[in-house]
Design a binder for these strands. Structure first.
Length: 363
DNA sequence: CTCTGAGCTAGGC
DNA sequence: GCCTAGATCAGAG
C-alpha cells in the first residue's frame, strides 16, 4: 500500500499549495510574447513550436510566424510548402504539416475559432492531450491539467514517484496527480505555473529547492531524493545509417527531388541518396562503379547528423551530368544555386549546400 | 567527439 | 490500449 503525500482529501493543504504556486508564478514568470494577451491562436502557435524545442530556439520562429501568419486565416490560405519553408531548421516537420491542416479545419469547420471543447479539439490534426489541455486551459480557462516534461518532473519529485517515467503506467499516475493538484478556479495560471516551476526551479539538474514554493509539500525534498527523481530508463540504442549523397550538376543547375508523402521528412526536398555501409563510405571505390560515365568533381569529408533514433553518417559527391535512371519516382527539379532557398530542405542536406557553396574541405 | 535532455502526437498492432 | 516512429539542437563531459 503506497501512501502518497498529497491526496484529494487534503483540501486545506491543496489550497495552500495552489496559492503558494500561483503567488510564486505571479512574481517570477518570464515575460514571453505569447503571454502578453492570451489568445488561442498565439497560444496554439507557441505550444506547437515549443514542443521538442527550447524557448530560446523557438522565439525567432514564433516572431516570424506571427508576422507572416497573424491569424488562422492567413495560415489556412498559405501553401504547405511555404509553411514547411518557414519551419525549416526547427525539425519535427509533422508539426508544421499538422498546423496547416488544423488551420484549414478551424477556418472551415469551426468558423475560424478554436473549438472550446476537449473532444472537438482532440479531433484536430496535431492536437493531442497535451496541446488540447494547454489551449483550453490557458485561453478558455477550462479545468484540464497539462502534463509535459516539466510537470512530470515536478510531480514525480513532489510525490516521490520512483517508477520509470518512460512507462505509460507511470505517466497515467502522474496525470491523475496533476488533475488532483490543478486549481479548478485558475487552471490556466496553475498549468503555466507548474511548467514554469519545472523550467526555472525544479530543474533536471541542481533544482533550487530552497526557493521552491512547493518544498513544504515535496516528498523528494524531505527524503533528499531530488537528485534521484524522476527515474528514467535508458532508451534503446540508435540505428546507424550511411549515405552517399549525389549532387548532379548540369549547366550550373543541381538536381533535387521531393521526398515521399509519408514517413521521415515527408515532402521535404533533398539531393538523391544512395544507401551504403560504414566501410563503403570510407573511399570512393564503390561509387566509381555506380557513377561510371560521370566525372566526379568533388567529394566531401564525412558529415554526421543525429536523429532521435538514427545516427546518420554521410558524404556528398559532386558529379557532372544527369543520372541515367530516375532516382525514385517523386518530383525532381534542376535548380540554380540561388534557388535552393525557395525549397524546404532538411538540415542534413542544407549542410551539403553549405559545402557546395562555401566549404572547399574534403575536396 | 559522444552522450543527454529537452518531450508530444499519430498511427500501427 | 500499448508501443514506437518522428526529428533538432544545445550543452556537458
Amino acid at each position: 500500500m503506497v501512501r502518497k503525500y498529497i491526496t484529494p482529501g487534503m483540501t486545506t493543504q491543496l489550497s495552500a499549495l495552489r496559492r503558494n504556486l500561483l503567488n510564486w508564478f505571479r512574481q517570477n514568470k518570464r515575460e514571453l510574447p505569447w503571454r502578453q494577451k492570451r489568445h488561442w491562436y498565439t497560444t496554439w502557435l507557441s505550444e506547437v513550436i515549443l514542443q521538442q524545442t527550447t524557448v530560446e530556439q523557438g522565439l525567432p520562429y514564433y516572431h516570424a510566424f506571427v508576422e507572416r501568419f497573424p491569424n488562422v486565416h492567413t495560415l489556412a490560405e498559405a501553401e504547405e510548402q511555404e509553411i514547411l519553408h518557414q519551419w525549416q531548421g526547427l525539425g519535427y516537420y509533422a508539426r508544421a504539416r499538422n498546423l496547416h491542416k488544423a488551420a484549414r479545419q478551424i477556418a472551415r469547420q469551426h468558423h475560424g475559432r478554436f473549438p472550446n471543447d476537449k473532444k472537438l479539439a482532440l479531433a484536430l490534426p496535431g492536437i493531442g492531450p497535451y496541446t488540447a489541455a494547454a489551449i483550453l486551459s490557458l485561453s478558455y480557462n477550462r479545468p484540464y491539467a497539462v502534463v509535459d516534461g516539466n510537470v512530470t518532473r515536478v510531480i514525480s519529485r513532489l510525490q516521490a514517484i520512483a517508477e520509470d517515467i518512460r512507462l505509460r503506467s507511470t505517466q497515467k499516475i502522474i496525470e491523475q496527480h496533476a488533475q488532483t493538484l490543478l486549481s479548478k478556479k485558475y487552471p490556466g495560471a496553475f498549468n503555466e505555473a507548474m511548467m514554469e516551476l519545472g523550467a526555472l526551479v525544479c530543474t533536471p539538474v541542481a533544482p533550487r529547492c530552497p526557493v521552491c514554493p512547493l518544498s513544504r509539500w515535496c516528498l523528494a525534498y524531505r527524503q533528499q531524493k531530488t537528485d534521484a527523481l524522476p527515474f528514467k530508463s535508458a532508451p534503446p540504442p540508435k540505428k546507424r545509417q550511411y549515405h552517399w549523397v549525389v549532387v548532379y550538376e548540369n549547366t550550373h543547375r543541381y538536381l533535387i527531388r521531393q521526398r515521399p508523402e509519408k514517413g521521415l521528412l515527408a515532402r521535404m526536398w533533398e539531393f538523391p541518396v544512395w544507401e551504403t555501409d560504414a566501410r563503403q563510405l570510407k573511399n570512393t571505390d564503390s561509387l566509381s562503379v555506380r557513377l561510371s560515365g560521370h566525372r566526379i568533381s568533388r567529394v566531401s569529408g564525412l558529415m554526421r547528423h543525429v536523429y532521435s533514433h538514427i545516427n546518420l553518417q554521410y558524404r556528398a559527391v559532386l558529379v557532372e551530368g544527369s543520372p541515367e535512371e530516375t532516382p525514385g519516382t517523386g518530383t525532381r527539379k534542376w535548380v540554380k544555386k540561388e534557388e535552393f532557398n525557395n525549397y524546404p530542405i532538411h538540415k542534413a542536406h542544407r549542410h551539403i549546400i553549405n559545402w557546395l557553396l562555401n566549404d572547399q574541405k574534403g575536396r
